[in-house]
C-alpha cells in the first residue's frame, strides 16, 4: 500500500509542477496566442506600418459601402469593438455571413492614411443558433436588431414557438 501511496504522491507532485509551468508559459505567450487584434488594441500596441496582421471586431452598423472597382467588388466598412474602430477596405468577394453587426477577422496592413487594407476577410459568427422564424419574430417585436448587437438572453427565446409569435 505504501508503494502505491508513494507513486500517487509523486504523480500529484509532477502534475502540480507541470500545471504551474503550463500556466506560466501560457501567461508569458498570451500575446502570441491571440489570433487577431481588436481596434482598441491598436492604440496600445500598433504593429509597425506595412506589417501584416489580423484585425477583428464587429462590422459597424451603417458603415458598409459596396462598389465595383475595375470590375472587382470592393467594400469599405468600419470594424469596431465598442471602444475604437478602424476603416477597412477590401477588394474581393465577402463571405456569405458578412453583414452589419457580424464579427469579422481581416488580414492586412495599416495604410499611411490610417485605414486598414485587407487581403482576406473571414466571418466570425457567434455561439447562438436559432431558426429563421425565431429570429424574425425577435426582430419584428423589436427585441433584437442583429445589426446593432447580440441577441437577447437565450432563456427568452430558446423555447419560443415561432408560429404563434411569428404569426
Amino acid at each position: 500500500m505504501t508503494r502505491k501511496r508513494r507513486r500517487l504522491w509523486i504523480l500529484l507532485a509532477c502534475g502540480l509542477g507541470l500545471g504551474s509551468a503550463a500556466t506560466l508559459a501560457l501567461f508569458a505567450f498570451s500575446d502570441s496566442l491571440v489570433f487577431f487584434l481588436a481596434p482598441s488594441d491598436l492604440a496600445a500596441k500598433a504593429p509597425a506600418p506595412g506589417r501584416t496582421f489580423r484585425l477583428g471586431g464587429l462590422v459597424e452598423q451603417g458603415s458598409v459601402q459596396r462598389s465595383t472597382e475595375k470590375g472587382r467588388p470592393t467594400a469599405k466598412f468600419r470594424v469596431g469593438d465598442g471602444a475604437a474602430s478602424v476603416e477597412v477596405t477590401y477588394v474581393g468577394i465577402l463571405p456569405d455571413l458578412f453583414r452589419e453587426g457580424q464579427g469579422v477577422v481581416t488580414l492586412g496592413a495599416m495604410q499611411p492614411d490610417g485605414t486598414f487594407r485587407a487581403s482576406e476577410v473571414l466571418a466570425k459568427h457567434d455561439e447562438t443558433y436559432m431558426p429563421k422564424d425565431v429570429a424574425d419574430a425577435l426582430k419584428k417585436s423589436g427585441h433584437w436588431n442583429p445589426a446593432a448587437g447580440p441577441p437577447p438572453p437565450a432563456a427568452t427565446w430558446n423555447t419560443m414557438e415561432p408560429k404563434k409569435t411569428g404569426g
Binding site: F35, G56, V105, Y129
Partner: peptide, 18 residues
Amino acid sequence: NTLHQPDTITLTGAPTMY
C-alpha cells in the same frame, strides 16, 4: 481572441440554442 465562437452549451447559463 479566436475565430471559433465560444461554447453554446455551458454549465453556467441557458444554452444559446433553439
